[in-house]
Design a protein around this nucleic acid. Sequence first.
DNA 1: TACTTGATGTGGTTGGACCACATCCTCTAG
DNA 2: CTAGAGGATGTGGTCCAACCACATCAAGTA
Lengths: 246, 246
Amino acid sequence: MWSNHIKYHWPMRTHQLVLQWIENQLSSGELALGGRLPAERMLAEQLQVSRTSVREAIRVLEAMGVVRAGVGSGPDAGTVVIADPTAALGSALRLHVATSHLPVADIVQTRVLLESWAVARARTDSPALAEAAGLMEKMEACHDTDEFLALDVRFHLALAEAAGNAVVSAMMGSLREAIQSYAGKLTANLPDWEATAARLRAEHREILAAINNHDGGRAAGLVAAHIEGYYKEAGLDPRDSDPARQ
Amino acid sequence: MWSNHIKYHWPMRTHQLVLQWIENQLSSGELALGGRLPAERMLAEQLQVSRTSVREAIRVLEAMGVVRAGVGSGPDAGTVVIADPTAALGSALRLHVATSHLPVADIVQTRVLLESWAVARARTDSPALAEAAGLMEKMEACHDTDEFLALDVRFHLALAEAAGNAVVSAMMGSLREAIQSYAGKLTANLPDWEATAARLRAEHREILAAINNHDGGRAAGLVAAHIEGYYKEAGLDPRDSDPARQ
DNA sequence: TACTTGATGTGGTTGGACCACATCCTCTAG
DNA sequence: CTAGAGGATGTGGTCCAACCACATCAAGTA
C-alpha cells in the first residue's frame, strides 16, 4: 500500500520532489528513452530548488540505471535517459549481499530457478539463441581461463534472453553481477580447470541441443545441474558473503 | 567482466569513491546492520572530500534500501544501516516500467514464475505459512475492497517467504510494488467484485490446502492459475505501462 | 582553404552558511 | 531536594556562489 518514494504526511525532501517530477515526465512520455533532461541549472530554476537537490535526484536515477550523465558538449553530453535495469538490480543485490542480508546460496538458487525457466521457454528462432550458439563455438576453441569465463557469462545471459522476458533477463544479469566476484574466486578452487572446462563445454552442447530439440523440460534440468554442479565442484560456502573483498 | 561501480581507466567520480569506501566497510563487517555511519561532516573530512559528495553517496545508498537517514539526536538520528532490498528493486522496476522498457506483462509473468516456485517449495512448518493462513482467515470475513486487497498483498508475500529464499522474497515484493498502481486500476475494471472476491477466497483455500498436503506441484499450478486468472478477468493490457499516473 | 583560438555550455566539486529538529545538560525556581 | 525551563550540542536538509575539466562550435587568422 505504501510506496517509499511518496511520503504522504510529512514534508517530502527536496530531491524526492525532483525525482517525482522526472518520474512523471517519464510516465507521461514527455521524457522518453534517449531523451535529455534539462541542464541541472535550468531544472533547478524551473522547479525552484537548488542545483544540489537536482543533482541528488539525478544521482539516484543514475544508480537506478535510468539516466547517464555526461560532461562537455555534443551528443554524449548532458543527462540522457537510458534503460539499464540490470545495473540497478545488480548494485542493489551486491550491496545487500555485502551486508550479509542476502545469502549467496539464495542468489545461486534464484539464478537456477530463473535460468531453468528461461531455457524451458526459449524460442528456437530467437536471435539471442543464435548468439548463444555463436558464443559456444568460441568457447570450444578458447583455452584462456579469463576469456572463457567472460564468454560463459555472455552465453548464459543470451540463454536467459531467449525466453523473451525482459524482467527475467534483467534479473538474471543482476544476479550474475552480484556474485561476479564470488564466482571468480571460486574458480581458483577448482582442482583441474581444463577438465572442468571440457565438462562445461559438453554440458553447453547438451543444453543447446535440448532447446533446439524443443525439449524444454530436459533443457531446464540440464541447466540446473550445470549451474549447481559448478558451484558444488568449486565448493560453495553460503556463509561467506564475499570472498573477493579487498 | 565490467561492473558499473568500478571505473578502471578514467578517474572515479568523488561520490563513487565514498560509495566504495562504505561498501568495503559493509563487506568487511566493520559496518553491520543497525550500525551508524560517521556523521556526514566527519566522513567528508575523513575521506578528504566535500560533504556534498558524501551526501550524494548516501542518497544512492538510501535509494538502494541500504541506509536510512534521520535528523535530530538520539536513536533515530544519524545515518544507520538497514536492509530493505525490496525498496531498491521495487523503485528500479517501477522507474523502468515508467520508461516502457519493462512490459507489465513480463512483470506479471515473472511474478507467476517466482510465486509458483515458492509455493512448490514452501515448508509447512514455516512461520510465514502460518501468517498466510491467518491472513486468509481475515479475508474470509472482510468485505471492504481496499482492506481485502491489502490483505491479499500480504498473503501472497507471506506465501513467497514460506520458501525461505530471501532473494525470491525480495524480488516478489518488488514486483508487487512496481505494478501496485497498475493492479489497483485493474480492480476497477472488474464487473462484479463480490463474485471475484469469493472466487479468490476459494482459490486461496485450495492453495494452502495443497501446500499443507505436501503437494507442491498442485500448489504451483493453482497459484499460477490464480494470478493469471485475476489479471485476465480484469483485462490486462500490456501496452499501457502505467494507468495510474497522474 | 586550413588551422588556431576563444566562447559557450555541460556536469563535477568544493566550502561555507543557515535551517529544523531532537536530545542532553545545566541552571534556576519552587 | 526536586521539577521544569532553556540553552548547548550535534544531526541531516537546503541553498548559494564559485571554480574546474571537458567537449563542441564558431569566429578569426595565416
